[in-house]
Nucleic acid binder design. Sequence first.
DNA 1: ACGCCAAAACTTGTATACTAGTCAACCTGA
DNA 2: TCAGGTTGACTAGTATACAAGTTTTGGCGT
Lengths: 226, 226
Amino acid sequence: MALSNVAERTTSTDLIFDSLYERIVSLELLPGTKISETEVAKSLGYSRQPVREAFTRLANLNLLLIRPQRATLVRPFSLELIADARFMRLAIELEVVRQAAAIPVPGAVKKLRSSIKAQREAVNTGDTQAFHDLDYEFHKLMCEAAGRPAAFQIISENKAQVDRLCVLSLTSPETMETLFADHVAILEAMMDHNALRAEEVLRQHLSRLDPVIDAIYTTHRAYFEH
Amino acid sequence: MALSNVAERTTSTDLIFDSLYERIVSLELLPGTKISETEVAKSLGYSRQPVREAFTRLANLNLLLIRPQRATLVRPFSLELIADARFMRLAIELEVVRQAAAIPVPGAVKKLRSSIKAQREAVNTGDTQAFHDLDYEFHKLMCEAAGRPAAFQIISENKAQVDRLCVLSLTSPETMETLFADHVAILEAMMDHNALRAEEVLRQHLSRLDPVIDAIYTTHRAYFEH
DNA sequence: ACGCCAAAACTTGTATACTAGTCAACCTGA
DNA sequence: TCAGGTTGACTAGTATACAAGTTTTGGCGT
């Protein structure tokens, strides 16, 4: 995952962070679960210190909620936080596609095209997992095409907040086809240097999660705040 | 300053963080300065532990550069990091003004108007410090007007990267007037629900730093990476 | 004088002990 | 039976000791 900034060396903290991150985003650790520094330290075979630092990082990503002297929880879903995260992602990605449409970085279009090809494959075979991975990569490539690879780190951090929620909803073949069509349209607009069109499609693309989130809110309210 | 997420209690770490943050952004601690956990701990009268956590936070904001087993530096300026930070701010603030222009939060316009009034006062009296503070507040109010107060936290984090650089350049009365005029224009466009115009002015507003940064790069290259 | 090597004086990473605050269960009294 | 207070078992925050790695420095040999 390597969310760490400039990992000049892999520390225990990094390993613990990655392990917990995975488990939280995959919902192996459910929202609201109490999680203790001591317990994690014991179970992973480290001391409290690196666990503590990993906790701090995860809390900064709004994945843990540290209540001093009380307990630390896997942060419950929050409509507010989710809305903020989605806003941030939308804002950044809009500017990304605008700049990518204006002056795409040389070579980027080729990579995007080949990603599209792989996506088509995944759609045809109905391989949702592969499509999910390719989706991740596509948006990353888009940032690179805009000359702002660092932007993807922020997008990714905000995605996490939403991704762990979407684990609760199945990706149907139809959804996959729709998302794929969006990607194609975005790339086409970008290659036409049509920033406005790219913007428009991207907005629609990201808003497709609206009903999904609403649905999960009604079916899994126990995992939400309050 | 209170950059901490949900400060339910003020800890030593918080105090140390705030202290260092202030000193770094004000350039009391120059880029490239070596800074040691032990030294800071001794000088502030704490143990290494909370200092260490404060270091971690500052490193996440790209204000410190921790080189394991080697040393920790006040992070030198980096054109790359500055460009990324400015991109992020631009992206977020563009969407902010768009949404504020579309459906401003009730009551927000009034606050913005009164901020403008105070800014005019500062411009007339030539009080650059007051104007700087009001500028900070204006952009914060804009986020509130868009219904996304959390967005300002991100903007603020990215501003820090640039602000400590701009300490090196004097704010002339002419600059102040220009920035003020921009603010007025943004608010007017917003009140007219003219998102495109607001966007346009904002882009120009934020790009006014271009020559300032270029100038500092030539005059203070020693503070930059490499 | 110069180059190399070794040791000492740093650095941050990790482990552990201790402090202080919070909560829940249980006991005591009515 | 129930209300209230005390106690103990948690929690995270802090201090300190130790480990592991890097840099600097100084001395030795050439």
